[in-house]
């Protein structure tokens, strides 16, 4: 990464002209404009009820209060929503990583009849979005008596075709010699996978984990269809259905709840930006 950056700097240094400073200024202004909605959200969530949402909007508050934040816990099952979202995110991330790793190892390292055909069939599932399978799955889940349960949300998410593909490509790039020692010692395939392949794949696995966890944490479409009681809902569904556009309560309280979601995420991202953007961009590089 560092080398990459030096090369890039060297490449463009000769091209820098005075006009570049205005471009930098423009880029910074654009960045601030992009962040403005979040800033507006935060400021209004901290204002006393009477001052929030006033026009012209308040950009620099003269007095702030945490009343709206206190009210979040009174009017919404906020803690429950957070716990539900955390639970589902952990189960989906861990589960999908395990199934993807096992399948990727089989496709990358093991010989068995029909392997390449099975891989193509699995890849074709990338063309089938959830929005297409949701109706038959809804009927299936209803017949299993699993409507309004967390199983309905996490079970279908335990398969990750894209993740399987990505890990397979990564495993193929690991030299086979590294496994030979383990193989000579008579280690089984599970041992080789766990002791050799997984440690060597830490960058790919952690990137995929971030990718899956973010998607699970933010997921709305599926959870909104399958979870109907407030104590089962995830954060995105709960905020929209209970407080936001469809629920009751003051918009200021919704903004306070949103701030509690967005601000920690922004701090986390400001620290770990490179790892997170790499894990999302990875899909673009490998495609």
């Amino acid at each position: 990464m560092a080398l990459d950056r030096q090369v890039r700097t060297a490449r463009w240094r000769g091209l820098r002209r005075t006009g570049d400073w205005t471009l930098d200024l423009f880029l910074v202004a654009l960045a601030l404009l992009i962040l403005t909605p979040f800033y507006w959200m935060l400021v209004n969530s901290l204002l006393p009820r009477a001052e929030a949402f006033s026009l012209p909007p308040v950009w620099i508050p003269s007095s702030i209060t945490l009343d709206n934040y206190v009210e979040v816990f009174d009017t919404l099952p906020f803690v429950r929503l957070v716990l539900n979202s955390l639970k589902l995110t952990v189960i989906i991330t861990a589960g999908a990583l395990i199934t993807s790793t096992l399948a990727a190892y089989a496709f990358a390292r093991l010989q068995f009849p029909g392997r390449d055909l099975l891989f193509i069939i699995l890849l074709s599932a990338l063309m089938v979005p959830q929005q297409v399978t949701v109706i038959p799955t809804f009927i299936l889940i209803r017949n299993l008596g699993l409507l309004d349960t967390h199983e309905a949300v996490y079970l279908p998410a335990l398969i990750n075709v894209f993740g399987t593909f990505l890990l397979r490509q990564f495993f193929l790039s690991i030299p086979r010699d590294l496994e030979d020692a383990a193989r000579i010692d008579g280690a089984g395939h599970l041992r080789i996978l766990w002791n050799v392949i997984v440690p060597l794949s830490a960058p790919a696995l952690s990137a995929l984990a971030i990718f899956i966890a973010l998607a699970a944490w933010n997921e709305f479409f599926w959870a909104n269809i399958f979870l109907t009681s407030p104590d089962k809902m995830t954060l995105p569904v709960g905020l929209v259905m209970l407080s936001g556009r469809f629920g009751t309560g003051s918009p200021v309280v919704t903004l306070a709840a949103l701030s509690m979601l967005v601000v920690p995420l922004l701090i986390l991202f400001a620290i770990a930006q490179r790892k997170i953007t790499e894990s999302v961009a990875m899909s673009g590089l490998k495609g």
Binding site: F38, W40, N218, P236, L255, L258, L261, I276, T277
Partner: peptide, 14 residues
């Protein structure tokens, strides 16, 4: 990049 990380639910509400 940051708005990409925020859920659609939060973004649409804001």
């Amino acid at each position: 990049f940051f708005p990409m990380l925020v859920s659609w639910a939060a973004v649409a509400l804001i």
